[in-house]
Amino acid sequence: MNKLTAFIAGLLFGLGLLLAGMANPSKVLAFLDLAGAWDPSLALVMIGAIGVAIGPLTWARHQSRSLLGKPMQLPTKRELDPRLIGGSLLFGIGWGIAGICPGPAVAILLTGRWQAIVFMLAMLAGMLLFTALETRRNH
């Protein structure tokens, strides 16, 4: 059952990205281009998503188990450390170059565009680089 809900959640997430316009890099870039012809649509994606998710996530914060009896695994870290800030700044620079963030990168992978495959391979390389650097740091 939990496998099925995971699959359905992923599917809905992908359909939502496509409907919202988030899977279109040029629309994302038009949202990030405040000084150009600004397309504010993606602000509404955030409002729609948070508007729906805030109730269930607030509920989840006060539970120790999910409805299917799984442990509730919410992040517990509180510090605003340089890794959080530096990492997020780097992510935004990359997001502003191509207009693609990780969710859409997965959602457009099978649409037959070479650009989607190149971006995905580079993103996976970036993530593996992080893992390699972390492993070195911890030794």
């Binding site: 809900t5 809905l12 919202a20 316009g21 998503a49 998710a53 409805l67």
Partner: peptide, 22 residues
């Protein structure tokens, strides 16, 4: 369409946390 797509994303995130705890 952006608001509706966002709501779907929110629904998906809600399902994953409420059912799977993730």
């Amino acid at each position: 369409s952006s608001l509706a797509g966002g709501a779907l994303i929110g629904l998906a995130a809600s399902l994953f946390v409420v059912a799977n705890g993730r």
